[in-house]
Design a protein around this nucleic acid. Sequence first.
DNA 1: CTTTGATTGATAATCTATTATCACTTGATA
DNA 2: TATCAAGTGATAATAGATTATCAATCAAAG
Lengths: 129, 129
Amino acid sequence: MSTAKRQTQQRTAIVTAIEGTDCTFTPQEVLGHAQRACPGLGIATVYRSIRELVEQGCIQRVVVAGSAPRYERTNVTHHHHFHCESCGAVTPLEGCSLKENYRLPSGFRASSHDVIFTGTCPKCADSEA
Amino acid sequence: MSTAKRQTQQRTAIVTAIEGTDCTFTPQEVLGHAQRACPGLGIATVYRSIRELVEQGCIQRVVVAGSAPRYERTNVTHHHHFHCESCGAVTPLEGCSLKENYRLPSGFRASSHDVIFTGTCPKCADSEA
DNA sequence: CTTTGATTGATAATCTATTATCACTTGATA
DNA sequence: TATCAAGTGATAATAGATTATCAATCAAAG
């Protein structure tokens, strides 16, 4: 996963941070992780790299509930998401929960689909109990 | 569906406009429809009424792709959405396309779920051809 | 019909995400 | 190593959605 012509500490740190995520991420989260390897890193550079990676098709924007816009690597297997209303975490759910034989009404052509479950994650369910 | 104490032309027009939608709507769309019955209507009043209706549980916020935030009546039968990348329209899809026997990993408790198909709607597919 | 506080419209303000600007820094090449 | 355009950080600017403000209006009650 390369972002552009020059290899800079910043880009390396950003790409490494993104590759380290297990699911979706926000620009702010990337900033936080990448700053460990690259302390002075600024948010503008994160946005620049994210835009490049989107243009390259390495990552894509995904929409999860009312939270801030998120991105996700495209080189991951098909999966869906669980959004915890309590802690805000977005967790990947393996596999696809759609009916195998589901068909859209005639005329509709879907290039992709998303399934988002909303509720309470195990961690928050425990702390509530 | 009432919104508050006084019955005003504005609230009536807004509620009527919302009841007339077949699926999701944005504040701007409500403004446009309600202004037919109530010409001077301002966007602030639409936002005020929408907030009241959300607090009353009559409508809820839904998230559809990268489009502006949308709302939807809660008194509709369970369904999902198709988002046309070409024209931006959001169309309701009857029924539920999830596997009947689908179970979340242990520990997760979902209070709701959303399925969003993205692609081309019949209208746009026709005009492309 | 008068009163009065709820409601409204216009618009300024706010909030958050994202982009543009620009002087300074630095990777890659000669 | 010297050069120089790509890249960067700080921050101002932008954009869009939503909320706050406030004087004017109006529904409802007497």
